[in-house]
């Protein structure tokens, strides 16, 4: 049986270091007053970068052998936003009525 892609240890250490850096930046950013919603945007953007690194390298999606799984993963994200977005329609609408 094929053992799949074996990443060098160096890659894992690098990703781990990037995740640590992201954690430090996100904590530091929370101490700064950004205008308007930017604090939330920055925090969620950093979280998304971290999440992407975990998915691509720790979860090996970058080297995934069965490409259909990528559709599976994308549809999970899509449906999550569908849930958040469609429910929000009601609450945004209520703010206007």
């Amino acid at each position: 049986m094929s053992i799949g892609h074996v990443s060098p240890i160096r890659t894992y250490i690098l990703i781990w270091a990037a995740l640590m850096l992201g954690t430090i930046i996100t904590v530091a950013a929370s101490m700064v007053d950004f205008p308007g919603p930017l604090n939330a945007v920055v925090a969620l953007a950093i979280a998304t970068v971290k999440a992407t690194l975990v998915v691509l390298f720790f979860m090996h999606v970058k080297y995934i052998s069965y490409k259909v799984n990528i559709i599976v993963i994308v549809s999970a994200v899509f449906w999550l936003f569908l849930l958040l977005g469609m429910v929000s329609i009601d609450y945004v609408g209520r703010a206007f009525s």
Binding site: T26, D33, F34, P37, A40, A47, K50, F58, M59
Partner: peptide, 24 residues
């Protein structure tokens, strides 16, 4: 396990951080 980590990567800023500076 990585998925559980992912959830925390979002929970940490949502619950601990982004409320600290603004009420937005």
């Amino acid at each position: 396990w990585h998925f559980v980590d992912l959830v925390w990567i979002y929970l940490f800023p949502l619950l601990y951080l982004i409320g600290r500076r603004h009420t937005f």
